[in-house]
């Protein structure tokens, strides 16, 4: 697990977006799992994101019109997994994050911590090699934040995923193996 820290405007979110293929760099290249991203068109980039990268956002970005189970199953649907299998796999992942009984609830019916755990389940359901997390505890109280970070650690070691996290929270950074500091668009 890698944490990226730095003051506002240091470029850490931009770095995350570029790594995740949500934005394109003006120069330089990014290679993920042996695949160089700059040469990919939009659809190839999208497929890469689907197969190789999981996202966890500060404000969860769950689809408000889908239940927790359906939110977790969405990447599986996008990957063409049959409906039954997708729901089963999503259910297992929700169980992993301790929310099996909350699968039928809409995001607005879940607490912040629960929503973030759903987001984590969604990010990991396709077992991507890389997970990018944008301030995963930024919208949580300290208790929920600790719980989420502990879960992060557990899942990371369980699935062997690389996690790159952008955070202001030094306690969150402490969970990581390595901390990078950015300043003025560069690694300090």
């Amino acid at each position: 697990m890698l944490a990226t820290m730095g003051p506002s405007g240091s470029g850490k979110y931009t770095l995350l977006n570029i790594l995740g293929g949500l934005d394109r760099p003006s120069e330089g290249s990014v290679t993920i799992d042996g695949k160089e991203m700059s040469g990919l068109d939009d659809d190839e980039l999208t497929r890469l994101r689907r197969e190789k990268i999981g996202f966890i956002f500060q404000f969860f970005n769950l689809l408000q019109t889908l239940t927790a189970l359906e939110n977790v199953a969405l990447p599986l649907h996008l990957a063409g997994v049959p409906r039954k299998e997708a729901r089963s796999a999503a259910g297992e992942m929700l169980d992993t994050v301790g929310l099996k009984e909350r699968g039928d609830h809409l995001p607005d019916e879940l607490s912040g911590g629960e929503q973030q755990r759903v987001a984590m389940a969604r990010a990991l359901v396709l077992n991507p090699p890389l997970v990018l997390a944008d301030e995963p505890t930024g919208n949580l109280d300290s208790h929920n934040g600790q719980e989420v970070l502990a879960l992060f650690k557990k899942l990371q070691s369980q699935f062997g995923t690389t996690v790159i996290m952008v955070t202001h929270d030094s306690k969150a950074a402490a969970f990581c193996n390595r901390i990078l500091t950015m300043q003025d668009g560069r690694l300090a």
């Binding site: 999208t46 689907r50 969405l74």
Partner: peptide, 8 residues
């Protein structure tokens, strides 16, 4: 949906 891997 696009961020999660849905093509255009």
């Amino acid at each position: 949906v696009r961020a999660l891997g849905g093509e255009r």
